[in-house]
Every structure is written in structure tokens, then in C-alpha cells.
């Protein structure tokens, strides 16, 4: 196959676009797609102060890399779940990326506050690890934005993540979640940060190719608790469809965006946590209730790694 733009040997075929590109032109193509998504959906303004939720995986490290290449000076936030080598290796990859980008990284170590890993916390509150993990991550990532003045939280959710989640919500008709399938989620001044997904229209395959071509050193291993996750089953089904009908995932998501009025929350009575101000449906948010349950009075704090990683320092929020 030849690159459609330069005629040299192609390195990736993009069947959903009926084309093939060499590495150099593919990087240009993908970065332009992310830039166009940011512009079209007004995801990040030049006056914004963005921070990227990084996990050490290909998508979050790539979006962090791309934003900084596009001129958006974005720092990072990482939640260390305390899952042995998996968490340690993820943090090493993130520190390396922070050093290369010369950006700051905020790290929340679950074990420092709870003295337990995520699976031990989940067991104690009788939840599955993914549920406890999601709850804590949402809280911590919001908190770093509110406390440190970041105006937008960027996540690495890609086309496949969104298509799989949409498929799951449609199969079980979870109408209350359908509005969330959007490239952005509005915030609430002083309480909830605005969230954006610049990779909304970039496939998982494209993001893996981008990370490989750009020498982004990401963690290849999966979270040990993701084994058997339904989202992986949906991704498998969608990839089988994509194999025979290229462009299916893109049409699924694009069609959804055209059909549904996105970014608006369904009407529910939302109040704010009496302890911390985080949006909740009662007097206290789930995170404050969790801290109460474990009799933890310490405030949520972050380790901060600056661009010179030898000068790591701790900051209280």
C-alpha cells in the first residue's frame, strides 16, 4: 500500500477513511483530527488551564503529548490505586512522560490515605474494584481541578470506549446515562470541573499506532481487575462489525451526536456535599462517606512532581 498523501510506503491502513498513510502523514492526520475535534466542540479555549487524567496507558499519555504539541500547556493527574507492579510501572511511565513534556504531575496515592489498595477498599465496602475505582478517581480528579485552578479536565476516552459504552447503555436502555456520551460535560462553578474528550473520534487502533510511531512509552499490561469487563465484550462485537463493515464505529458515534442533544444533564435534584462541596444526591458525597467509614480525617493530598523530577515535593490541598 502507498501513502495517499506522499506516495511513499504506507505504514497504516485506515479502512474507515478508505485510505492508507505513512507514519509522518498519519501523525499529522491524527493530530489534526484531535485539533478539529477541540475546535468543533469548543473543548478547550486558549484561556483554559487544562489538566490531563493520566493512567499510563496509550490513550491518556498520547492525548497529553498531543495537547502539548498543539500548544495547550497541560499538566497531568494520576491516581495510584496501589495495585502492586501494575501501579508502580504506570507511575514510572507517567513520570517519564512528564519529564519529556516538562509538565507537572499531581499524584494521589490511595494507600497513603486509606492504608489499603483499591481492591481492599472495594472489598470492605462490598463493591467491585472498578466501581470503587471510578468513584475515587472522579472525586480526586475533580478535586485537583477545583483546588489547583485547572479549568478543564481532559480524559483519553477514545471512539471505541465511547461506542462500547453507548452500546451497553442502549442494550440495557440506561436512559439516564445516554446524555453522557458527548465530547464534553459541563461543570458547575466551584463544584464540578468541565470534562472534555479530545479523542472522541479517534479509534483505539489509531491511538495505539500514534503512540507506537511517536515513541510514547505506555503500559501495555491491562489492569488486573478489568478481566471479564463487559466493555471489552462490546468492543469485541464492534470490532467484528468493523472488520466486515469499516467505519461502523465512527458512523455509530457520529450518528448519535447528530441525533441526541448532547452535553445536557437530565433533570435530577443535585445538591452539594456539606463537607467538601462536591455535587451529590444527599447531604454528603460518596467520597466523604467513604472517608467517614474508615475514620479518616486527613485531607486529600497530592504528591507533586515538577518538570525536574528530582525536586518532587508534597503539597496539601
Amino acid at each position: 500500500m502507498k501513502c495517499r498523501l506522499c506516495g511513499q510506503e504506507a505504514h497504516i491502513s485506515l479502512r474507515s477513511y478508505n485510505t492508507a498513510l505513512c507514519s509522518q502523514d498519519f501523525v499529522f492526520f491524527l493530530e489534526k483530527r484531535v485539533s478539529d475535534t477541540i475546535q468543533k466542540y469548543h473543548l478547550i479555549d486558549k484561556n483554559d488551564l487544562p489538566i490531563v487524567a493520566v493512567s499510563g496507558g496509550k490513550d491518556s499519555l498520547s492525548v497529553w503529548h498531543i495537547l502539548n504539541r498543539l500548544g495547550y500547556e497541560a499538566d497531568g493527574v494520576y491516581v495510584d490505586l496501589g495495585i502492586g507492579d501494575y501501579s508502580r510501572e504506570s507511575l514510572e511511565k507517567i513520570k517519564k512522560a512528564a519529564e519529556q513534556l516538562q509538565r507537572k504531575i499531581f499524584v494521589f496515592h490511595i494507600k497513603k490515605i486509606f492504608e489499603k489498595s483499591i481492591d481492599e477498599i472495594a472489598k470492605a465496602i462490598r463493591r467491585v474494584p472498578c466501581s470503587a475505582c471510578g468513584m475515587i478517581k472522579r472525586y480526586v480528579m475533580n478535586k485537583v481541578c477545583i483546588d489547583k485552578g485547572y479549568t478543564v479536565l481532559v480524559t483519553g476516552h477514545n471512539l471505541d470506549d465511547e461506542a462500547a459504552a453507548l452500546m451497553g447503555n442502549l442494550l440495557y436502555w440506561k436512559e439516564e446515562y445516554l446524555w453522557k456520551k458527548s465530547p464534553f460535560l459541563e461543570g458547575r462553578e466551584g463544584h464540578l470541573s468541565r470534562k472534555v474528550k479530545p479523542l472522541f473520534l479517534c479509534s483505539e487502533r489509531e491511538m495505539a499506532a500514534y503512540a507506537l510511531i511517536s515513541d510514547i512509552d505506555y503500559i501495555y499490561e491491562e489492569c488486573p481487575f478489568s478481566v471479564g469487563a463487559k466493555s471489552l465484550t462490546y468492543k469485541n462485537i464492534l470490532n467484528n462489525l468493523e472488520e466486515t463493515s469499516p467505519g461502523t464505529k465512527l458512523q455509530f458515534i457520529k450518528g448519535y451526536l447528530k441525533t441526541v442533544k448532547v452535553g445536557e444533564e437530565t433533570q435530577r435534584d443535585i445538591s452539594y456535599c456539606a463537607s467538601c462541596g462536591y455535587p451529590c444526591y444527599g447531604d454528603k458525597c460518596t467520597m466523604c462517606r467513604l472517608l467517614d467509614r474508615f475514620h479518616i480525617e486527613n485531607r486529600i493530598d497530592f504528591d507533586v512532581y515538577s518538570d525536574n523530577l528530582d525536586l518532587s515535593k508534597k503539597m496539601m490541598t
Binding site: S13, G57, K58, D160, R205, Y220, C223, F225
Partner: peptide
């Protein structure tokens, strides 16, 4: 790309792209 002809001395790495839970 998929039409690339592999030679007998090539080192080939297959990279899984699907992740998440």
C-alpha cells in the same frame, strides 16, 4: 500494513490495541 510481505528473517511483533475495563 496488511499487504506487507514478511520475510523469513523478519522480527515480527503483534501489538494488541484493545484496552480498558
Amino acid at each position: 500494513t496488511e499487504d506487507h510481505r514478511l520475510g523469513k528473517d523478519d522480527r515480527v511483533k503483534l501489538v494488541r490495541v484493545v484496552s480498558g475495563g
